[in-house]
Design a protein around this nucleic acid. Structure first.
Lengths: 179, 179
DNA sequence: ATAATAGCAGAACGAACGTTCGAGTAGGAC
DNA sequence: GTCCTACTCGAACGTTCGTTCTGCTATTAT
């Protein structure tokens, strides 16, 4: 039940940002009254955002980055699985990552460290995979950086172009380049 | 005088987003009282954002994309100049592009079309340059998309990692790859 | 000197914000 | 039947929001 509630809150924060999301909108999205939301989230808007951020990080880990450490499969297969997983994750969000949303604006001050540490970890995981593919550390770092940059850039650019398909093309392009 | 005012307003919108920026903050950034801001921007917060967005688009055009159409220089030189110009533009903003900020949140609804049309134009300009380099249309489109994705992705990822240098490395990597 | 204008801010405005309160309903435990 | 807990909501709270009103101070033109 609580998970249903959380899923209903996501689109509001994703489209409006933390500052832009109002309790009227959040309540409307759940079908509850404003006051009822406080029964489930006594901490109010800040708690909803915090819970949602943690959930988003966990989802992203599970759906995308976890594939990178499934050492039974070949490194390049793991990369492809990661990219597919990431694509699925953000597609559910119609092309947006809640973690990236909270990394901007006022919420960044509160949750910045959590996000930063998580992404540094993820980047290191990615680097390790490229090293498994035989790349030297420096080269592996560049490959990992380029991969994350392209994925999140594709997400942002799709919005800038007003073309949701842009991200799909971006994913295709990346997968092709990685062979 | 008005330009000074505008420049003082930029960091507030960039760090807080449109919804997150309050008139108290905007006034404090200029050193004026809230009421005084209305003498310069009778339309209030919405007008400030609109003027700033147009100015940002013009700046980005002038500082970065304009280099792409300086047909006296070789295509690859123009690309390098574009990347350097883009890098300079966002560096002044400490690693953020105001246009991208306004493309998210509530402001997207009002200014979305302007931003989208502008970026489609810019993308076409970029595609044309890659065609000049001898790439077929399809390939040129991929090259252009990848370039924008990496630039804006580098910007966003730098924030996610909490590492401003990430964007600098991103620019270096792109320039190297383009030879 | 006087009039006119541009710029500025203190104080107040209604509206919307996030939040709290108190009452009320439903359902299971004993 | 009586508790208790879980849950919901209308109404109101104080605060802050964006905005406007009013009058003051410079500066400039006449």
């Amino acid at each position: 039940m609580r998970d249903t509630l959380l899923e209903q809150l996501v689109p509001v924060f994703r489209e409006q940002g933390y500052a832009g999301a109002t309790l009227v909108q959040l309540a409307a999205a759940t079908g509850l009254g404003k006051a009822s939301l406080y029964h489930h989230f006594p901490g109010g808007k800040a708690e909803m955002a915090a819970v949602l951020l943690r959930k988003s990080v966990a989802d992203l880990q599970k759906r995308a980055f976890a594939h990178l450490t499934r050492t039974k499969r070949a490194p390049n297969e793991r990369l492809q699985a990661f990219i597919d997983g990431f694509s699925d994750y953000v597609a559910e969000g119609a092309g947006h990552c809640l973690v990236a949303v909270f990394a901007q604006g006022p919420a960044a001050g509160v949750h910045g460290d959590l996000i930063n540490n998580q992404f540094v970890d993820w980047r290191n995981t990615l680097i390790a995979v490229f090293e498994e593919l035989g790349e030297k550390r420096k080269r592996a770092r560049r490959s990992a950086d380029q991969l994350i940059d392209e994925l999140y850039g594709g997400l942002l650019t799709a919005k800038l172009l007003g073309d949701p398909d842009h991200f799909t093309r971006c994913v295709k392009r990346i997968k092709k380049a990685l062979g």
